[in-house]
Each structure stands twice: as C-alpha cells, then as structure tokens.
C-alpha cells in the first residue's frame, strides 16, 4: 500500500473525518454546510444549524419568541463580520431590540417592501447577487395589507393570488441554492387572537427546515408586591422538518429575557 493512502487511513482511524480529499463532497450536515443559529441546544437539534443554500421556515404565533430567535440569528451572523438582510414586509423591525440582541446594524441591510410580491422580488434580487450568508424574509403581513399584497406591475410574483403559490417558494429556494445563502422565512401560524395577521403563507415542501415555536409561558417578576415586571418568554421549538438531518423530532426549550 502506498505510503500516502496508508497515512490518511491511519489519521482517519484516529481522527474520523479529519482528512479528506480536497474535491470530496462535504458530508451532509457538516458545519460547513450549516449556519449556526447562536443557540447551542438548537444547533445540536439541527445537526449544526440551518442548512446553507436552502429555505428554512420559522413558524409560530405572536409572543412566542419568533422575532427574538430571528434577531439572535442575525446577531450571531453579523458578530462574525458577515452581512445579512432583513426583508421586513410588515415594517416591524425594531433597531433598539436588534442592538440588544447583539446585531451589528452596520452589517444588516433592512428592506421594507410595500407588499408581499415586492418582498419576494427583493429577496430574489439579494439571493441572486450573493454575498449575503443570511437573508430573513418576514412575510407576516398585517391584515390591512394582506388583501393588497401583490406586485403592481405583474412580474413573476404578480398579483396577491400568486404571492404564496408554490412556484414562488421554489423560485426562492432555487435562488438560495445558487448563492449558498440561508433563506429564513418567518411565518405566522394560526393564533389565539387569529386576527392580527393575514394568515399563514407556508413555503410547503420548498422548506428544508421547518421549526415551530410553541408558547410555554410569559415570565413576570412580582416579587414583594411591587409592580409586575416583564421578565421574558419561554417557548419550545419543535423541529417539524430537518431535511438531510439525522433527527426530525427535536424539541428545544428557549428563553427570551
């Protein structure tokens, strides 16, 4: 046996996966293929994080920590010197909260499209350009806007009826695959109030990862009869789908305070 393959075999025996050919494909679920979320426990459940080049979907009702989780993700990415984009259809991004979550606002592109169709077009433009390892698309459209969601001049996303159609999500997923970016879509599921937003617009099978946030409790500090203070939220993340991952049924407890 030639010496080089023998050495590689020995090294791999002691350090599995440490040596590989430069042109060998990365193992699915490897760290190079996943973007860490910033939550160690969630990353374990997701085999390293959200998959690069794929569409991931975060769903949940109001006050379950969906925005906090997304901002934590942004903070984690921008803290490493990378740029990210937030496509903010409902115009709900709060810069002060983002700073508190550790987001470097100088590396975050904030886009406030007037409607859902424009949001899709903007997302595709950013993904096609490349260079953004993380693009967040918040499609939780307030009800007063939901009926008017649609491109004003047609185009691939034209019309509110087509805005949530499967081909739109496939198109975005393909754009994400081309740029190796992580596209995260924030979705609103049916809520107890159920009247705040315009109903779910799910990415369906185009999403490689689907996480659902479920509310557990709101934590108030009521010590000593003093006025109540909002301490935070406790939510549970259920991994509904983790395509290519080892597990699909992980549950992670997260606290936002």
């Amino acid at each position: 046996m030639p010496i080089a393959p023998r050495l590689v075999a020995e090294l791999n025996a002691h350090l599995p996966g440490a040596v590989r050919r430069a042109d060998a494909p990365l193992a699915h679920g490897g760290r190079e293929q996943r973007l860490a979320t910033g939550f160690a426990t969630l990353d374990v459940a997701l085999d390293g994080g959200l998959p690069r080049g794929h569409l991931s979907e975060l769903v949940g009702p109001t006050s379950t920590g969906l925005t906090s989780l997304a901002q934590r993700l942004l903070g984690h990415v921008t803290a490493q010197g990378q740029v990210a984009a937030w496509i903010d259809t409902p115009d709900a991004f709060d810069p002060a909260s983002a700073v508190a979550a550790g987001v470097d606002l100088g590396r975050l592109l904030w886009v406030r499209p007037p409607d859902l169709a424009t949001a899709f077009a903007a997302t595709e433009a950013l993904l096609t350009m490349g260079g953004f390892p993380l693009v967040l698309l918040d499609v939780r459209v307030p009800q007063r806007h939901a009926k008017s969601a649609g491109a004003p001049r047609g185009g691939p996303y034209g019309g509110s009826r087509m805005a949530g159609a499967p081909h739109v999500w496939m198109r975005l997923a393909r754009a994400a695959a081309g740029s190796r970016s992580v596209l995260v879509v924030l979705q609103r599921t049916a809520h107890r109030s159920a009247t705040t937003d315009g109903g779910p617009v799910t990415a369906g099978s185009s999403a490689a990862v689907r996480l659902e946030l479920q509310p557990l409790r709101v934590v108030w500090d009521r010590a000593g009869g003093a006025p109540s203070l909002l301490d935070g939220l406790v939510a549970q993340i259920v991994v509904l789908r983790n395509r290519g991952g080892r597990r699909n049924d992980g549950r992670v407890l997260l606290e936002f305070a």
């Binding site: 939550f39 550790g102 939220l233 305070a257």
Partner: peptide, 8 residues
C-alpha cells in the same frame, strides 16, 4: 438557550 427578548 437564552437570548434577548425582542419587540416587534
């Protein structure tokens, strides 16, 4: 597993 609470 803890992060800042955001305002929407």
């Amino acid at each position: 597993s803890c992060s800042a609470l955001a305002v929407r």
